[in-house]
Design a protein around this nucleic acid. Sequence first.
DNA 1: ACAAAAAATTTCCTATAGTATATTTTTTGT
DNA 2: ACAAAAAATATACTATAGGAAATTTTTTGT
Lengths: 205, 205
Amino acid sequence: MNVDLEDFQANRRQVSVASDQSDEIGPRLHHLRKGRGWTLQDASKASGISASAFSKIERGELSPTISTIQRIARGFDMDVVSLLSDPDAQPTLLGRRSVTRASEGKPHLSGNCDNKLLCAELKNKRMTPIKTRVVARDVEEYDVWPKTDAEIFMTILSGTVVVHSKIYEPLELHEGDSMYYDASAEHVWTRKGPEEAVVLWVLTS
Amino acid sequence: MNVDLEDFQANRRQVSVASDQSDEIGPRLHHLRKGRGWTLQDASKASGISASAFSKIERGELSPTISTIQRIARGFDMDVVSLLSDPDAQPTLLGRRSVTRASEGKPHLSGNCDNKLLCAELKNKRMTPIKTRVVARDVEEYDVWPKTDAEIFMTILSGTVVVHSKIYEPLELHEGDSMYYDASAEHVWTRKGPEEAVVLWVLTS
DNA sequence: ACAAAAAATTTCCTATAGTATATTTTTTGT
DNA sequence: ACAAAAAATATACTATAGGAAATTTTTTGT
């Protein structure tokens, strides 16, 4: 496990160095073509794109359509994604207890939300999991906007929630969406749409 | 009308010959937009691409250029590669905040589970949220039983999961159930029953 | 260094991507 | 069930992608 992780990291370092920049296909294509010792006509023959177009694309004089990119990828025998991505990326990470059943949870009313603390009987936890039914429909319904130095992970179990913050634009989240943020800036949640909105969230303690 | 349509299709057929790929961005974009509850005008405003063009792209009537795709990706707060690589499309990060949409998450295969790291591009988090499809049906399928000094909070999004540990009896958890435990004792998960089992879990880092 | 050949770029053209607006279709409220 | 509003699609146009061939630049052999 440790070994794997280190291998991976070493690998990553070396890969990302070799493949330079981010989102300019032109230089990448040029590099790729030259790397294979291909002329523009070779590339043209392989991809079905004219040499002139290829030249323009490489020099950024022309923004290829996705179908052209697909044909080029084909010609280079690679998939579109690896053609466009600098192959670094890919993050890593890869193992007393308390159970709360679906219908349970310690109720904890607060302001405009109906909270249930999960696994509350376990003390000295490093995280606090909470399930909340968001009631407020408008930010006006909040008197205070909470603010702590904790970090929050939240995921939407049902409905639509809008996250409001002093430093970001309002952000709409739907069922299955997740968000991670630090709560040092004031923030509140409102719900939206017909269904009830339920959020499962965990905060560091 | 019929004439136009046929004209168009004939036209397109000849153009797309080699290109029309298994990877269609159209439906993907449509799904993405709908997933956020956006109208075409919302998408247009966010990306700077006209609603009509967006509509055509979604329906495959038009092959967008890479620069258009880049603008769309921007509007959706994701990078181009994720937008094109679909099921594991990857999200948004603006400062100390990170969003993972329902269909997204960085894939990370490990042993007997199919993991998706949520909000992975945010570094130095105090918690690591992960969504896992539990594949193993029997503890025999595990070679090693992981063990760390982290704490784990888990909740069952669907299916039935059995938690095995060296120090407790196996414990069955169903959809909506939650559990908090420290992972200093070896433990593994197996699934049970016909449905696929999906666990959302968070570990301290 | 020069001519010939090969590769890259430019030109000029056609096909299609993308825009603004009109129209149709779907949703919403009564 | 209907009218009004909102969303999606079609139309007509402009801007630009992409192709064939001409031109320029670079390479190669002598």
